[in-house]
Nucleic acid binder design. Structure first.
Lengths: 207, 207
DNA sequence: GTCTATACAAAGATAGAC
DNA sequence: GTCTATCTTTGTATAGAC
């Protein structure tokens, strides 16, 4: 169990073609979506034949599901469990959450994988739909809990319950990535980030 | 210029296959996106051959662009020009704006055409990209002006400029449609609608 | 304006040699 | 694990008769 690896996020230690495929497909999906990415695209990019890609991921559904699963797990891992937070750490966790979207926005024309796949949702294989749902559910639940408990500790201020605020916030950020990319306008995401803060952080709310 | 027609929204008076095609494709796009809809799908649904569909829309880009153009024009037409608004009419116009999204949400698994095509944006033909941009730009500009002027007349209250609020709001509603569909959860859009109101309507803001 | 027929390219996927 | 070769299906698009 040698901890080598160049800069892998999590995942198995041994690099291997399988991981290279995932690494190539993920950004491709974020840019073009599932239906517009082919085995040929992948084959071209990593210099092996289509058939070899099929060896690692027999069907496209397998491939797609593996990509979102890894993506969702990685995003999950960036969010400190609510039980471990207290006091000012809530604000930090919240900023970190926004930072994830800010990072994606900085890589436009990529958008959040959840957002693109959400658009194609009805055409996705079951296994992928399950992962997309899990992604959104986890995100919402974590953020909802953070907002709720953070408010109890006086860090956040907002009306209604944390879950509702979390829903609105995630939706806004996902939407902003998509629209901002279409308009080639970084202000779109900036407006969403600012609004998100103003929704819950009293310090940012002076007119 | 006989004003017959069954229940066409705008468009030319004579029904004709061309319009039937648009009528069939629009909801298909809202559900599946552009890349997952084929001439065969259309052919099946209106009972003519693929080649006949090509007669009306030679390329798929022509077809796609025509669909969004009509869609964007229709949404545009639902929004009373800001110059014609005053006093309480601002609140009415705003509710009407939210109503458009509520209607789409009620037809889930369809989502806003702008939202789906935004997800596929990088893979769309130029002509379609132009229309998608126009859709979002018009929506944002109209709403931004309504919020701004409505606030000047004491109808709305919010921090920052109207354009920023409008950006955040449109993004939130688009995102909520997509996520709500994936999760098969009507509460998603409801949360967004409620949050939108709370963002600008003082009457809805008591905790 | 709609049909039949067909061209042509791409896609997902499998068989079997190396 | 990767290759060549191939199958099969689907998609966009065009030609030409009716």
């Amino acid at each position: 169990m040698k901890a080598d690896v160049e800069n892998k996020t999590l995942e198995s230690s041994e690099d291997g073609t399988r991981t290279r495929v995932l690494d190539v497909v993920e950004p491709l999906l974020m840019e073009r979506g599932f239906n517009a990415v082919s085995y040929q695209d992948i084959s071209d990019r990593i210099g092996i034949r289509k058939a070899s890609v099929h060896y690692h991921f027999p069907t496209k559904a397998d491939l797609g599901a593996a990509v979102i699963r890894r993506y969702a797990d990685r995003v999950d891992a960036m969010h400190v469990p609510v039980e471990m937070l207290s006091g000012g750490m809530f604000a930090v966790a919240f900023e970190r959450f926004l930072g994830v979207f800010a990072q994606i926005g900085a890589r436009s024309p990529r958008v959040c994988l959840g957002g693109v796949l959400g658009g194609e949702f009805e055409t996705l294989p079951e296994a992928m739909q399950v992962e997309v749902r899990r992604f959104f559910t986890n995100l919402r639940e974590w953020l909802g809990a953070v907002l709720e408990r953070g408010r109890a500790q006086g860090v956040f201020t907002f009306a209604g319950d944390g879950e509702t605020a979390a829903r609105a916030m995630v939706a806004m950020l996902e939407g902003a990535l998509v629209i901002g990319r279409a308009l080639r306008d970084p202000d779109e995401l900036a407006a969403a980030l600012g609004t998100a803060r103003r929704m819950v952080l009293p310090s940012t709310r002076e007119q």
